[in-house]
């Protein structure tokens, strides 16, 4: 080490490049280590899903019986269906509503807007269990008029409550980046305001809408505490089901199988998408970022 330091001083430039090389290798090691850290639990779940034994600490033999078994686990299947149903509806509605709410908020004067944007942060930042309990109390007030309200409806409402803010927060910065003359130009050409909104503004903020949608889905699909308090009538999602089962009984390894399938399908989907995009490229050669993937 001492030697190296001396040479570094003498022949600065050459040693700088070797240092650079070491730095680059170290960087790669670091990236791999961090990604491994992010994925280690996913990898372990995958291992558990192909383990023939239900024992979580001993690997006996590779087997795909738990995958074949998913369809037979009725309670699990029901929970999975419910999860997808709620997340799909909530994500689409949140994206749609959130976008227009964001445009509405953007049209407000700056002072008023700041106030509402502060309130908009509360659902994101509040503790889940508190949000869930508060929402249950509020929805209960509606029961006077609609006695059978608890279930899919309240669950979707609750998910909208904490997903819309994410969409608004992703869309708002993009709205600020759009050229204010864009709308005026369109309207000068005789386009009605709402038509201009859809034809001109929405395409310009597509990237924000898309990342908002991604975040909304991520938050919605794995929510437990808020869903727990706001569901009803037997409409349990996967998180609620998993929580209930681990308390007193054993989770069927089919849950691991489902989780692994979800990850694999998404990964394969992403790679296919990337492949198709590459095929389509060729003509288009501009900078590829958020705005491209949404197009």
């Amino acid at each position: 080490m001492e030697n190296q330091k001396a040479t570094l001083k003498d022949y600065g430039y050459r040693d700088f490049t070797t240092l650079n090389k070491i730095y680059k290798i170290l960087k790669k090691v670091f990236v791999v280590a961090i990604v491994l850290g992010l994925y280690i639990s996913i990898i372990v779940i995958a291992i558990q899903s192909i383990n023939e034994s239900r024992n979580l600490s001993i690997f006996t033999r590779v087997s795909f019986q738990w995958y074949a078994n998913i369809l037979q686990e009725e309670e699990l299947m029901q929970a999975i269906r419910n999860t997808f149903l709620v997340s799909a509806i909530a994500t689409v509605l949140a994206t749609f509503l959130g976008t227009f709410f964001a445009i509405g908020l953007y049209a407000l004067s700056k002072k008023v807007r700041v106030l509402w944007m502060l309130l908009n942060n509360v659902p994101i930042l509040n503790a889940d269990i508190v949000t869930g309990f508060s929402l249950m109390l509020m929805f209960r007030l509606l029961m006077v008029v609609f006695p059978n309200i608890f279930g899919l409806f309240t669950l979707v409402m609750a998910h909208l409550f904490f997903t819309i803010p994410y969409v608004i927060l992703s869309v708002m910065p993009k709205l600020k980046e759009t050229d204010p003359n864009l709308m005026d130009a369109a309207m000068d050409l005789g386009v009605r305001p709402y038509k201009a909104l859809i034809k001109v503004v929405i395409p310009a903020i597509k990237a924000g809408i898309f990342s908002g949608m991604l975040l909304a889905l991520t938050m919605s699909i794995d929510d437990f505490a808020i869903s727990y308090f706001t569901t009803g009538a037997g409409f349990d999602n996967l998180s609620i089901w998993i929580y209930a089962v681990i308390g007193r009984r054993n989770l069927t390894p089919s849950v691991y199988a489902f989780s692994t399938l979800l990850t694999i399908f998404t990964l394969v989907g992403l790679l296919t998408y990337q492949f198709l995009q590459k095929q389509k490229k060729g003509k288009k050669n501009e900078k590829n970022n958020f705005s491209d993937i949404a197009s």
Partner: peptide
């Protein structure tokens, strides 16, 4: 395609938190 990389980063969050934590 940076979007793919970002989705790759966020993908573990789509698996259930309890399952992930228990396996850890």
């Amino acid at each position: 395609n940076k979007f793919i990389l970002l989705t790759f980063v966020i993908l573990p969050m789509w698996s259930n938190l309890i399952l992930r934590t228990e396996s850890l």
